[in-house]
């Protein structure tokens, strides 16, 4: 191909990716994109390059409400009228992880989640809609995180580990604590990978707004029943269902 024409195509792709084209030229590029595989690849090449300019910006966590709104929009796209807190469905899983990911961000920001007071207008026993809680504990300086889900009515505690354990954790165990009015209560050791399910200790004052904390402990966990090592991270508990 004529090298000049080649340059023109490449420039059109570059400027389309960059966004500098005025409407007419933009439509020209879009028409070309629709029918020309080579042009598409050229565009992709430029997109990848320019993406580097965006990715050099310092990351900035959005507010949790973004995720919550997104969750609503995605749920709204599916047709499920009169959803009544179904158990063990995708929707429930969704609600869990939704709050969870939002919390990752809240924690990363160091935001204290302030929950509005809960107004209970009606109290009905709905066995399928047991209250559940979720918290995501994100280790700073690391992508290690734990999603902790608890459903007290079923004594169920599930912990899912994600990311790579940081070097500081090597040779130690990490222990999960619920901060109660009477001080920290151990919820056991945290897995560094995979998912762990175990029974939730009875009569735990679990509630939205309470804090979970992770401490670094000797192997086998705290010998004293209280945290002995540094606190690695904390997170507020959210009600997820």
């Amino acid at each position: 191909m004529d090298p000049r024409a080649d340059d023109e195509r490449s420039l059109l792709a570059a400027e389309y990716a960059l966004g500098t084209l005025e409407a007419d030229a933009r439509r020209e590029a879009e028409a070309l994109l629709a029918r020309d595989e080579g042009f598409r690849r050229e565009l992709w090449w430029w997109e990848r390059r320019f993406a580097g300019l965006g990715l050099r910006l310092a990351p900035l966590p959005p507010r949790p409400l973004v995720w919550l709104g997104l969750q609503r929009r995605i749920a709204g796209a599916a047709v499920t009228p009169l959803r009544r807190a179904p158990r063990a469905t995708a929707t429930t899983a969704w609600a869990w992880t939704a709050s969870a990911a939002a919390l990752v961000l809240a924690v990363a920001l160091g935001v204290q989640m302030r929950k509005p007071p809960q107004v209970i207008t009606e109290r009905v026993e709905v066995p399928v809609a047991a209250t559940s809680y979720v918290a995501v504990l994100q280790m700073p300086q690391s992508d290690m995180h734990w999603t902790v889900s608890a459903t007290p009515a079923r004594d169920a505690l599930a912990i899912r580990a994600g990311g790579q354990p940081p070097a500081a954790v090597a040779g130690h165990d990490v222990e999960l604590w619920l901060i109660t009015d009477a001080g920290p209560v151990s919820l056991g050791l945290l897995p560094v990978s995979g998912e762990l399910r175990r029974a939730l200790p009875a009569h735990l004052p679990l509630a939205a707004g309470r804090t979970l904390a992770v401490s670094l402990e000797p192997q086998g966990g705290s010998p004293t029943g209280k945290p002995t090592g540094p606190v690695l991270t904390t997170a507020a508990i959210l009600q997820s269902g």
């Binding site: 965006g54 990351p59 900035l60 966590p61 959005p62 973004v66 969870a100 961000l105 992508d143």
Partner: peptide, 9 residues
């Protein structure tokens, strides 16, 4: 959770 801070920036 992993990518939104970069896109948000």
């Amino acid at each position: 959770a992993l990518t939104s801070p970069k896109l948000f920036a």
